[in-house]
Amino acid sequence: MDYYLSVATFAGLNVILALSLNLISGFCGQVSLGHAAFYGLGAYAAALCSVAGLPMGVSVAVGMLVAGGFGIVTGFAALRVREDFLAIVTMGVGFLFLGAVRKQAWLGAEMGIAKIPSPLDKWGYAALAIGGAVAVLLLSLHVRRSWMGRAFGAVAQDEDAARSIGVDVSGYKIAAFFIGTAAAGLAGGIYAHMTQLVVPDAFNFVQSVTILAMVVVGGIGSTLGVVAGAVLLTLMPEMFRFINDYKLLVYGGLLLLVMRFSPEGLAGLVHRVTGRRLA
């Protein structure tokens, strides 16, 4: 049972991470190759708070705010640079986070932060992660239906045209980064308490790419597709044990094949087969 609960928890966390990246990259069109940094910021901030004696709820909230705060800073960077430049800058943000954390004694350097208090049992974390995933899912569906979603679409498709019809492009980019990174911080806070240990390597470039893989395999921009992608990529290594030894080979290969043969991901396949667009 414990095993299934922990798989369910990770599936929930991955859904949160993938949906939050989808909000930034899929809805608002701002490529980010450093999403794991915000996951890590949330985890580290929550871990510090909990170790200092704050209750878990407060710690997780602080984690979200810290991640969202740095997200806003990154959003400002996205106002200066676009597209390929932005992709590399966000990748740089990821490396900067890692390289800074690795050197800070007060963050435990390479050893990270251990002995984080863990007030819940396995059921509790699974419920929390899945509850969080459902909340972010509902938020995504709502954003898509609201005027914010349409304005995001305008920003993603043509920034200059969006400006000339009165859309505050900068405001929307920053909003997208704030919402998306704060949600990633939520995942980080839950993760830190569940595992009771955070180390820098859990938030490296490969982790960023893994989140991105979930988004593109599901179909960038499609909420339901991205949920499916996240669940699928979480379960696959569990279902086929042998995959675990070749996890990166499979992830990398899958990214490559999806981009090469069906760049719209699972959502694109559904569209082609049924003629219907997923939300």
Binding site: V143, S146, W147, M148, R150, A151, G166, Y172, A175
Partner: peptide, 8 residues
């Protein structure tokens, strides 16, 4: 759509 929060 003028303000993101209002649009949301």
């Amino acid at each position: 759509t003028r303000r993101p929060w209002r649009a949301l």
